[in-house]
Nucleic acid binder design. Structure first.
Length: 338
DNA sequence: AAGTCCTTCAACCGCTGCGAT
DNA sequence: AATCGCAGCGGTTGAAGGACT
């Protein structure tokens, strides 16, 4: 039994809204509010379906909306929240005044995913690519690992190729010493296809090396540690899949990248990618029950009418002060990758 | 200058949960 | 308890404009 459509498809206009339509909708809502979207187009004299009107209003016409570029702080908030709740755009948008879920989703898909990939971080799991490779290599028996690693490589390949073909990266192999500039540095290649093939071969080479020599794999998990100073060396010394310039960002940048000697161990970096919150399989799914620190259950999804129950000023889930949502060091690292 | 490719983002689609009946 | 209709959500699409060749 099919559901009755929300409107007569034949009688409704689709596609871009005209300024006249915007005016009609805005002035109607200003007078009558947004009760009953089905009636709004009819009463406002619009040949649109109610759903289309609602979207136009919530995503564009609402007076409280913020249009224009996302700020650094907003981007950081999105990344951080995404690492906790995954693709729950409405929940994330609720933490960004004036932004809609559509805005956040679009910005994530067009900008932030690429930024993270460019930093050597898998935007799905929020873990370094190199770590994911290493996990595959260490957790599986040799006959399986080759195939699975190949499959994983396929997953990451598009992101990596995007990065590597857009930007010329001095691709350092794990053994090479950048200061000496020895000839293990992969030279720039002339054609785009050669460049891609070469890059894929390098990744494969280093992956297979990591599989054959598990000793060289990073056994510590810097993002799970709050005390160990994690530096890019963790990954340069790892499977060597990624160039130092990329792995240097593996912890969303802050202490290990921008403050090489300091290792501030900012709660920002710790909470961005802790094992307990950042893996895809562990991400909160819609309608799963969540528990707060008192063991009381609350639910994800739209059951959370006020998202501040999760993202409140005390940051219960993250155990960080809210001020740390905006970490200037991380921000700089993030911006420098543009 | 023209054609092609890429990026962005508004809009649509289908699904789900909730409240009313 | 079952059904219906609405609102909201996330994934996807496609038009438009910009960048590149």
């Amino acid at each position: 039994m099919g559901r009755i459509p929300c409107c007569e498809k034949d009688n409704v206009k689709r596609g871009q809204w005209t300024p006249e339509e915007d005016n009609k909708l805005s002035s109607y809502i200003a007078q009558h509010g947004t009760r009953n979207w089905r009636l709004i187009p009819k009463n406002a004299g619009l040949q649109r379906c109610g759903k289309s009107c609602r979207l136009r209003w919530t995503n564009y016409l609402r007076p409280d909306l913020k249009h224009g570029q996302f700020s650094d702080a907003e981007e950081q908030t999105i990344v951080k929240l995404h690492s906790v709740v995954g693709n729950r755009w409405s929940l994330i948008a609720a933490q960004l005044p004036g932004r809609t879920d559509n805005d956040v989703k679009n910005h994530w898909n067009t900008k932030l995913k690429k930024k993270l990939s460019g930093m050597g971080i898998d935007p799905v799991t929020h873990k370094p690519f190199s770590h994911l490779m290493a996990e595959i290599a260490t957790t599986l028996a040799p006959p399986q690992v080759a195939h699975l690693a190949e499959a994983a490589l396929g997953c990451f390949k598009d992101e990596m190729l995007h990065l590597l073909t857009k930007k010329r990266i001095d691709f350092q192999l794990q053994q090479s010493n950048p200061a000496q500039g020895n000839n293990t540095t992969v030279p720039y290649v002339s054609s785009k296809q050669d460049e891609k093939d070469d890059t894929v071969e390098k990744i494969k080479l280093n992956l297979s090396r990591a599989i054959q020599e598990p000793d060289m794999l990073p056994m510590n998990k810097p993002w799970e540690s709050t005390s160990t100073r994690a530096t890019s060396a963790n990954f340069e010394g790892g499977c060597g899949v990624f160039p130092a310039s990329v792995t240097g960002y593996h912890q969303y940048g802050p202490s290990s990248f921008a403050n090489e000697g300091g290792g501030s161990g900012s709660p920002w970096s710790q909470s961005m990618c802790t094992g307990s919150t950042c893996t895809a399989g562990e991400q909160v799914r819609s309608h799963e029950k969540l528990k707060d620190e008192n063991g009381e259950e609350f639910q994800g999804g739209k059951e959370i009418k006020n998202a501040s129950s999760i993202f409140n000023t005390d940051c219960v889930l993250w155990d960080i002060p809210s001020d740390d949502l905006i970490n200037p060091i991380y921000r700089d690292a993030f911006n420098n990758k543009e």
